[in-house]
Design a protein around this nucleic acid. Structure first.
Lengths: 145, 145
DNA sequence: CCTTGACGGTCAGACGATCTGACGAGATGG
DNA sequence: CCATCTCGTCAGATCGTCTGACCGTCAAGG
Protein backbone atom coordinates (compact mmCIF):
# COMPACT_ATOMS: atom_id res chain seq x y z
CA UNK A 1 0.00 0.00 0.00
CA UNK A 2 3.03 2.26 -0.06
CA UNK A 3 2.70 2.78 -3.81
CA UNK A 4 3.39 6.26 -4.94
CA UNK A 5 0.98 5.61 -7.76
CA UNK A 6 -2.36 4.63 -6.30
CA UNK A 7 -5.46 4.31 -8.37
CA UNK A 8 -7.54 7.44 -8.50
CA UNK A 9 -10.68 5.73 -7.28
CA UNK A 10 -8.93 4.68 -4.11
CA UNK A 11 -7.37 8.10 -3.64
CA UNK A 12 -10.84 9.58 -3.78
CA UNK A 13 -12.02 7.15 -1.17
CA UNK A 14 -9.93 8.48 1.71
CA UNK A 15 -11.34 12.01 1.78
CA UNK A 16 -14.87 10.77 1.34
CA UNK A 17 -14.55 8.32 4.18
CA UNK A 18 -12.90 10.92 6.38
CA UNK A 19 -15.64 13.47 5.71
CA UNK A 20 -18.43 11.03 6.36
CA UNK A 21 -16.87 9.90 9.62
CA UNK A 22 -16.34 13.46 10.80
CA UNK A 23 -19.88 14.53 9.98
CA UNK A 24 -21.34 11.52 11.70
CA UNK A 25 -19.19 12.08 14.75
CA UNK A 26 -20.22 15.74 14.85
CA UNK A 27 -23.87 14.81 14.64
CA UNK A 28 -23.49 12.27 17.41
CA UNK A 29 -21.74 14.84 19.58
CA UNK A 30 -24.61 17.25 19.02
CA UNK A 31 -27.14 14.72 20.24
CA UNK A 32 -28.08 13.20 16.92
CA UNK A 33 -26.60 9.89 17.90
CA UNK A 34 -29.31 7.71 16.44
CA UNK A 35 -28.30 8.28 12.82
CA UNK A 36 -26.61 5.44 10.98
CA UNK A 37 -24.38 6.06 7.97
CA UNK A 38 -26.95 4.59 5.62
CA UNK A 39 -29.69 6.79 7.05
CA UNK A 40 -27.43 9.79 6.66
CA UNK A 41 -26.76 9.02 3.03
CA UNK A 42 -30.49 9.01 2.36
CA UNK A 43 -31.30 12.02 4.52
CA UNK A 44 -28.56 14.08 2.90
CA UNK A 45 -30.34 13.77 -0.43
CA UNK A 46 -33.71 15.06 0.68
CA UNK A 47 -34.27 18.32 -1.16
CA UNK A 48 -35.70 21.51 0.35
CA UNK A 49 -39.11 20.88 -1.23
CA UNK A 50 -39.19 17.18 -0.54
CA UNK A 51 -38.04 14.31 -2.68
CA UNK A 52 -39.73 11.19 -3.93
CA UNK A 53 -38.64 7.89 -2.53
CA UNK A 54 -37.77 6.61 -5.98
CA UNK A 55 -35.51 9.59 -6.61
CA UNK A 56 -33.80 9.14 -3.25
CA UNK A 57 -33.17 5.52 -4.09
CA UNK A 58 -31.77 6.33 -7.52
CA UNK A 59 -29.44 9.03 -6.23
CA UNK A 60 -28.15 6.93 -3.38
CA UNK A 61 -27.82 3.94 -5.70
CA UNK A 62 -29.95 1.61 -3.63
CA UNK A 63 -33.19 -0.14 -4.40
CA UNK A 64 -36.42 1.59 -3.52
CA UNK A 65 -37.05 -1.11 -0.92
CA UNK A 66 -33.86 -0.19 0.87
CA UNK A 67 -34.62 3.51 0.61
CA UNK A 68 -38.11 2.88 1.94
CA UNK A 69 -36.76 0.94 4.86
CA UNK A 70 -34.31 3.70 5.77
CA UNK A 71 -36.97 6.37 5.43
CA UNK A 72 -39.14 4.33 7.80
CA UNK A 73 -36.43 4.57 10.42
CA UNK A 74 -35.80 8.26 9.76
CA UNK A 75 -39.49 8.90 10.14
CA UNK A 76 -39.67 6.93 13.36
CA UNK A 77 -36.79 8.92 14.84
CA UNK A 78 -38.29 12.23 13.72
CA UNK A 79 -35.86 13.34 11.05
CA UNK A 80 -38.26 13.28 8.11
CA UNK A 81 -41.97 13.19 7.33
CA UNK A 82 -43.81 11.66 4.42
CA UNK A 83 -46.37 13.95 2.85
CA UNK A 84 -48.63 13.28 -0.13
CA UNK A 85 -47.38 14.54 -3.47
CA UNK A 86 -50.04 17.04 -4.64
CA UNK A 87 -49.25 16.31 -8.27
CA UNK A 88 -49.40 12.52 -8.14
CA UNK A 89 -51.59 10.46 -5.88
CA UNK A 90 -49.30 7.46 -6.16
CA UNK A 91 -46.30 9.30 -4.87
CA UNK A 92 -45.36 10.71 -1.49
CA UNK A 93 -42.70 13.29 -0.82
CA UNK A 94 -40.08 12.79 1.84
CA UNK A 95 -39.42 16.08 3.61
CA UNK A 96 -37.11 17.05 6.43
CA UNK A 97 -38.86 17.51 9.76
CA UNK A 98 -37.69 20.00 12.38
CA UNK A 99 -35.20 17.57 13.83
CA UNK A 100 -33.91 16.83 10.35
CA UNK A 101 -33.34 20.53 9.66
CA UNK A 102 -31.47 20.88 12.92
CA UNK A 103 -29.26 17.91 12.11
CA UNK A 104 -28.64 19.27 8.64
CA UNK A 105 -27.42 22.55 10.10
CA UNK A 106 -24.95 20.70 12.31
CA UNK A 107 -23.78 18.59 9.39
CA UNK A 108 -23.18 21.67 7.27
CA UNK A 109 -21.13 23.26 10.01
CA UNK A 110 -18.92 20.18 10.31
CA UNK A 111 -18.48 20.03 6.55
CA UNK A 112 -17.31 23.61 6.47
CA UNK A 113 -14.89 23.01 9.34
CA UNK A 114 -13.40 19.91 7.73
CA UNK A 115 -13.01 21.65 4.39
CA UNK A 116 -11.24 24.48 6.18
CA UNK A 117 -8.78 21.98 7.63
CA UNK A 118 -8.15 20.48 4.25
CA UNK A 119 -7.68 23.88 2.70
CA UNK A 120 -5.17 24.73 5.38
CA UNK A 121 -3.23 21.60 4.49
CA UNK A 122 -3.43 22.00 0.73
CA UNK A 123 -3.36 25.75 0.38
CA UNK A 124 -6.14 27.90 -1.02
CA UNK A 125 -5.07 27.47 -4.58
CA UNK A 126 -4.90 23.69 -4.69
CA UNK A 127 -8.07 23.34 -2.68
CA UNK A 128 -9.90 25.41 -5.26
CA UNK A 129 -8.30 23.43 -8.06
CA UNK A 130 -9.29 20.17 -6.43
CA UNK A 131 -12.89 21.27 -6.23
CA UNK A 132 -12.90 22.45 -9.82
CA UNK A 133 -11.39 19.25 -11.17
CA UNK A 134 -13.65 17.01 -9.14
CA UNK A 135 -16.65 18.95 -10.31
CA UNK A 136 -15.65 18.32 -13.89
CA UNK A 137 -14.89 14.69 -13.16
CA UNK A 138 -18.36 14.33 -11.79
CA UNK A 139 -19.71 14.87 -15.29
CA UNK A 140 -18.47 11.42 -16.24
CA UNK A 141 -18.79 9.62 -12.92
CA UNK A 142 -22.18 10.66 -11.63
CA UNK A 143 -25.06 9.09 -13.53
CA UNK A 144 -27.25 11.75 -11.92
CA UNK A 145 -26.58 14.98 -13.87
CA UNK B 1 -28.53 18.56 -5.54
CA UNK B 2 -27.83 21.09 -8.29
CA UNK B 3 -25.53 23.11 -6.05
CA UNK B 4 -22.50 24.44 -7.79
CA UNK B 5 -20.75 24.25 -4.46
CA UNK B 6 -20.90 20.68 -3.25
CA UNK B 7 -19.00 19.46 -0.26
CA UNK B 8 -15.63 18.00 -1.09
CA UNK B 9 -16.34 14.71 0.60
CA UNK B 10 -19.32 14.14 -1.62
CA UNK B 11 -17.42 15.22 -4.71
CA UNK B 12 -14.84 12.60 -3.89
CA UNK B 13 -17.51 9.99 -3.56
CA UNK B 14 -18.61 9.95 -7.19
CA UNK B 15 -15.30 8.91 -8.72
CA UNK B 16 -14.71 6.32 -6.04
CA UNK B 17 -18.10 4.77 -6.55
CA UNK B 18 -17.72 4.84 -10.29
CA UNK B 19 -14.33 3.17 -10.14
CA UNK B 20 -15.47 0.46 -7.78
CA UNK B 21 -18.50 -0.29 -9.89
CA UNK B 22 -16.45 -0.46 -13.08
CA UNK B 23 -13.85 -2.76 -11.58
CA UNK B 24 -16.47 -5.06 -10.14
CA UNK B 25 -18.31 -5.15 -13.45
CA UNK B 26 -15.09 -5.91 -15.29
CA UNK B 27 -14.29 -8.72 -12.90
CA UNK B 28 -17.76 -10.17 -13.28
CA UNK B 29 -17.47 -10.00 -17.07
CA UNK B 30 -14.17 -11.87 -16.87
CA UNK B 31 -15.76 -14.70 -14.94
CA UNK B 32 -15.01 -13.50 -11.43
CA UNK B 33 -18.66 -13.01 -10.70
CA UNK B 34 -18.62 -14.35 -7.17
CA UNK B 35 -16.86 -11.35 -5.65
CA UNK B 36 -18.86 -8.98 -3.49
CA UNK B 37 -17.79 -5.37 -2.98
CA UNK B 38 -16.81 -6.06 0.61
CA UNK B 39 -14.69 -9.04 -0.41
CA UNK B 40 -13.04 -6.91 -3.05
CA UNK B 41 -12.14 -4.22 -0.57
CA UNK B 42 -10.37 -6.79 1.58
CA UNK B 43 -8.74 -8.66 -1.30
CA UNK B 44 -7.41 -5.42 -2.77
CA UNK B 45 -5.35 -4.87 0.35
CA UNK B 46 -3.56 -8.19 0.38
CA UNK B 47 0.09 -7.43 -0.21
CA UNK B 48 2.43 -9.40 -2.50
CA UNK B 49 4.02 -11.20 0.44
CA UNK B 50 0.82 -11.80 2.33
CA UNK B 51 -0.85 -9.69 4.96
CA UNK B 52 -2.06 -10.41 8.46
CA UNK B 53 -5.74 -10.46 9.10
CA UNK B 54 -5.40 -7.74 11.71
CA UNK B 55 -3.65 -5.46 9.24
CA UNK B 56 -6.28 -6.09 6.60
CA UNK B 57 -8.96 -5.20 9.09
CA UNK B 58 -7.21 -2.01 10.15
CA UNK B 59 -6.62 -0.82 6.61
CA UNK B 60 -10.15 -1.54 5.48
CA UNK B 61 -11.51 0.03 8.66
CA UNK B 62 -13.52 -2.99 9.72
CA UNK B 63 -13.25 -5.17 12.77
CA UNK B 64 -11.06 -8.22 12.60
CA UNK B 65 -14.16 -10.36 12.92
CA UNK B 66 -15.58 -8.88 9.76
CA UNK B 67 -12.27 -9.24 7.98
CA UNK B 68 -12.02 -12.84 9.11
CA UNK B 69 -15.47 -13.57 7.83
CA UNK B 70 -14.70 -12.07 4.43
CA UNK B 71 -11.40 -13.92 4.19
CA UNK B 72 -13.28 -17.13 4.93
CA UNK B 73 -15.40 -16.54 1.87
CA UNK B 74 -12.45 -15.51 -0.28
CA UNK B 75 -10.69 -18.68 0.75
CA UNK B 76 -13.71 -20.83 -0.01
CA UNK B 77 -13.98 -19.33 -3.51
CA UNK B 78 -10.28 -19.76 -4.15
CA UNK B 79 -9.05 -16.17 -4.23
CA UNK B 80 -6.75 -16.34 -1.22
CA UNK B 81 -5.01 -18.86 1.02
CA UNK B 82 -4.10 -18.65 4.65
CA UNK B 83 -0.54 -19.70 5.38
CA UNK B 84 1.23 -19.78 8.73
CA UNK B 85 3.31 -16.76 9.55
CA UNK B 86 6.84 -18.09 9.99
CA UNK B 87 7.68 -15.31 12.41
CA UNK B 88 4.67 -15.66 14.69
CA UNK B 89 2.82 -18.87 15.44
CA UNK B 90 -0.33 -17.01 16.48
CA UNK B 91 -0.63 -15.22 13.18
CA UNK B 92 -1.42 -16.44 9.70
CA UNK B 93 -0.73 -14.61 6.50
CA UNK B 94 -3.41 -14.09 3.92
CA UNK B 95 -1.93 -14.50 0.44
CA UNK B 96 -3.44 -14.30 -3.00
CA UNK B 97 -4.00 -17.70 -4.62
CA UNK B 98 -3.74 -18.24 -8.38
CA UNK B 99 -7.32 -17.18 -8.92
CA UNK B 100 -6.73 -14.11 -6.83
CA UNK B 101 -3.71 -13.13 -8.91
CA UNK B 102 -5.73 -13.57 -12.08
CA UNK B 103 -8.53 -11.40 -10.73
CA UNK B 104 -6.04 -8.78 -9.62
CA UNK B 105 -4.64 -8.58 -13.13
CA UNK B 106 -8.11 -7.98 -14.54
CA UNK B 107 -8.84 -5.37 -11.90
CA UNK B 108 -5.63 -3.52 -12.69
CA UNK B 109 -6.48 -3.47 -16.38
CA UNK B 110 -9.91 -2.00 -15.69
CA UNK B 111 -8.43 0.62 -13.38
CA UNK B 112 -5.99 1.70 -16.06
CA UNK B 113 -8.76 1.89 -18.64
CA UNK B 114 -11.04 3.95 -16.41
CA UNK B 115 -8.24 6.33 -15.50
CA UNK B 116 -7.52 6.75 -19.18
CA UNK B 117 -11.14 7.76 -19.75
CA UNK B 118 -10.97 10.24 -16.93
CA UNK B 119 -7.73 11.65 -18.23
CA UNK B 120 -9.28 12.06 -21.65
CA UNK B 121 -12.09 14.04 -20.06
CA UNK B 122 -9.94 16.18 -17.79
CA UNK B 123 -6.82 16.57 -19.87
CA UNK B 124 -3.38 15.25 -18.98
CA UNK B 125 -2.48 18.23 -16.92
CA UNK B 126 -5.50 18.33 -14.64
CA UNK B 127 -5.49 14.56 -14.23
CA UNK B 128 -1.93 14.74 -12.97
CA UNK B 129 -2.82 17.64 -10.72
CA UNK B 130 -5.78 15.76 -9.32
CA UNK B 131 -3.60 12.82 -8.44
CA UNK B 132 -0.99 15.01 -6.83
CA UNK B 133 -3.49 16.93 -4.74
CA UNK B 134 -5.36 13.84 -3.64
CA UNK B 135 -2.10 12.22 -2.65
CA UNK B 136 -1.32 15.17 -0.43
CA UNK B 137 -4.83 15.21 0.95
CA UNK B 138 -4.40 11.61 1.90
CA UNK B 139 -1.84 12.68 4.46
CA UNK B 140 -4.63 14.12 6.57
CA UNK B 141 -7.47 11.79 5.67
CA UNK B 142 -5.91 8.34 5.80
CA UNK B 143 -5.11 7.15 9.30
CA UNK B 144 -2.88 4.54 7.66
CA UNK B 145 0.18 6.55 6.60
C1' DC C 1 -64.70 5.94 -21.68
C1' DC C 2 -61.94 1.44 -20.86
C1' DT C 3 -57.86 -1.18 -21.55
C1' DT C 4 -53.03 -1.65 -21.27
C1' DG C 5 -48.66 -0.78 -19.89
C1' DA C 6 -45.55 2.07 -17.17
C1' DC C 7 -44.59 3.97 -12.65
C1' DG C 8 -44.62 4.79 -7.22
C1' DG C 9 -44.53 2.37 -3.31
C1' DT C 10 -45.09 -1.48 0.06
C1' DC C 11 -44.80 -6.35 1.88
C1' DA C 12 -42.34 -10.66 2.68
C1' DG C 13 -38.35 -13.24 2.94
C1' DA C 14 -33.61 -13.91 2.51
C1' DC C 15 -28.72 -13.05 2.65
C1' DG C 16 -24.57 -10.30 3.36
C1' DA C 17 -21.84 -7.22 6.09
C1' DT C 18 -20.93 -5.45 10.28
C1' DC C 19 -20.64 -4.97 15.29
C1' DT C 20 -19.84 -6.23 20.58
C1' DG C 21 -18.27 -9.37 23.84
C1' DA C 22 -15.92 -13.43 25.33
C1' DC C 23 -12.38 -16.56 24.65
C1' DG C 24 -7.91 -19.64 23.73
C1' DA C 25 -3.33 -19.84 22.22
C1' DG C 26 1.06 -17.84 21.44
C1' DA C 27 4.42 -13.84 22.26
C1' DT C 28 7.01 -10.73 25.24
C1' DG C 29 9.21 -8.37 28.97
C1' DG C 30 10.45 -7.84 33.49
C1' DC D 1 7.73 -17.77 34.71
C1' DC D 2 4.03 -14.82 35.48
C1' DA D 3 1.48 -10.69 33.83
C1' DT D 4 0.11 -8.80 29.97
C1' DC D 5 -0.34 -7.94 25.32
C1' DT D 6 -1.45 -9.50 20.58
C1' DC D 7 -3.55 -12.71 16.87
C1' DG D 8 -7.30 -14.79 15.63
C1' DT D 9 -11.71 -17.28 16.39
C1' DC D 10 -16.52 -18.31 18.16
C1' DA D 11 -21.22 -16.84 19.32
C1' DG D 12 -24.94 -13.96 18.74
C1' DA D 13 -27.15 -9.85 17.26
C1' DT D 14 -28.31 -5.97 14.28
C1' DC D 15 -28.39 -3.40 10.23
C1' DG D 16 -28.28 -2.82 5.26
C1' DT D 17 -29.32 -4.67 1.07
C1' DC D 18 -31.32 -7.48 -2.50
C1' DT D 19 -35.02 -10.21 -5.40
C1' DG D 20 -39.62 -11.13 -6.28
C1' DA D 21 -44.46 -10.48 -5.75
C1' DC D 22 -48.02 -7.35 -5.26
C1' DC D 23 -51.51 -3.18 -5.24
C1' DG D 24 -52.94 1.34 -6.49
C1' DT D 25 -52.43 5.22 -9.74
C1' DC D 26 -51.18 7.59 -13.97
C1' DA D 27 -51.14 8.31 -18.99
C1' DA D 28 -51.87 7.14 -23.81
C1' DG D 29 -54.55 4.74 -27.61
C1' DG D 30 -58.33 2.58 -29.34
Amino acid sequence: MADTHQNLGLLCFYPHRAMEARVLAGLAAAGFDDLTPAQGRIAARVGPDGTRLTDLAAQALVTKQTAGHLVDQLERTGYVRRVPDPTDARARLVRLAERGEAALAVARRVEVAVEAEWTAHLGEEDAARLRAILTRLREVTDPWR
